[in-house]
Design a protein around this nucleic acid. Structure first.
Lengths: 202, 202
DNA sequence: CTGGATCCCTCACGATACTG
DNA sequence: CAGTATCGTGAGGGATCCAG
């Protein structure tokens, strides 16, 4: 992509990761190294030529590194360089901004692992202490002292059970309809109360 | 722009501001309302048709608002909605990330007001207290208790005078060559010492 | 099966000219 | 000043094909 013709850190950053698909590619790699095929399945609508081009660009920019796994797992994986890892705060802010106008989820076709990402995004800054467990649809994850972990943790302070739409309204509107809460309800509500308005005021 | 086909706050956010020029447009408007022509001069390489299209998209998405100024200043200005203002943390993080691989500035063709933006970006999180004044090339700005203000403030704790390249090396490498510092040098150095490594390790 | 490269088609972008 | 009209180019999307 051509440059923006300005000496500006924002324009420069966008020259590196501003192309279509680039930041979504980084999002995929934030969960760890992935193979080419994993990236294709994680980004179904990207053309393979485009994926190869984006990977090449990001590699040339020092954001992504290509590594051959040693035998017997002889395959190549792509992973973020340390500089690429530093995009995490950028993507985190972008996600929090986007979430405010995203609307409720479809009940189908959510990506595996979405709950851990959602907890990390929406609640981890708010629930720095306590043990929260979530069983949402067919996903399970917990928040232990602000860190998301997989599965329902033992002796949680509070356990939340609902589906994806119920979870959305829980964090977005603080509506508890259709949500089953076991344990310290007040603790959960105090965390949610720290949430500002999340929906687009318009 | 077509969607990314995923229920994901990042993909959704990129669907709104992910197109070429969109975030730079928001950057321009973060300084306050601007007229169409001001935007053209601030983004010299954008085509006017493209600018019109991006403005229309951002307005439809609730990020930008178009307002007619009352007579006698009968002109239309564009400004960020509250939701658009909330992009400031995103752009801030992006700028800090991009600055790490940006390299030293050209001595010419820096945009007016760059110094205030640079102070805001690089030093305002670090210098929450104290009065720092800067005279860099033909730009003047100060940092008062962490807030950037225009001009050289009276009775500053420290006054820094150099050119843009000297300023860059001051914040990037903490090199003081070619930099004239009046006042509390130790205070300035303590702020700079709080800066981590800023350049791409590669 | 993984890891791409190639082709084609469409549309978005960039430059410029033009208008209310 | 604030855009719209037009047009050429090139990047992105989709499908297919090929090599290890």
């Amino acid at each position: 992509m051509k440059n923006y013709g300005q000496y500006c850190p924002i324009a420069h950053a966008l020259g590196i990761v501003g192309e279509r698909w680039s930041l979504l590619l980084v999002r995929e790699l934030l969960d760890g190294p992935k193979r080419y095929t994993d990236l294709v399945t994680g980004l179904p609508k990207i053309g393979t030529n485009n994926l190869a081009a984006r990977l090449k660009d990001l590699e040339a920019a020092g954001v992504v590194e290509k590594r051959r796994l040693p035998p017997p797992a002889a395959s190549t994986v792509y992973e973020l360089s340390p500089y690429g890892q530093d995009l995490r705060p950028v993507i985190h802010e972008l996600a929090r901004w986007g979430a405010r106008s995203l609307g409720p989820p479809p009940l189908h076709a959510l990506e595996p692992g979405w709950l851990m990402h959602a907890l990390d995004l929406a609640l981890s800054p708010l629930a720095r202490s306590g043990r929260f467990a979530f069983r949402i649809g067919d996903e399970e994850a917990s928040l232990v002292d602000g860190r998301p972990v997989a599965g329902v943790v033992e002796d949680a302070d509070v356990l939340v059970e609902t589906d994806a739409v119920g979870f959305y309204h829980l964090v977005a509107d603080r509506q508890l309809e259709g949500v089953r809460v076991d344990g310290d309800v007040a603790l959960l509500e105090s965390v949610l109360a720290a949430f500002g308005p999340t929906l687009l005021p318009a």
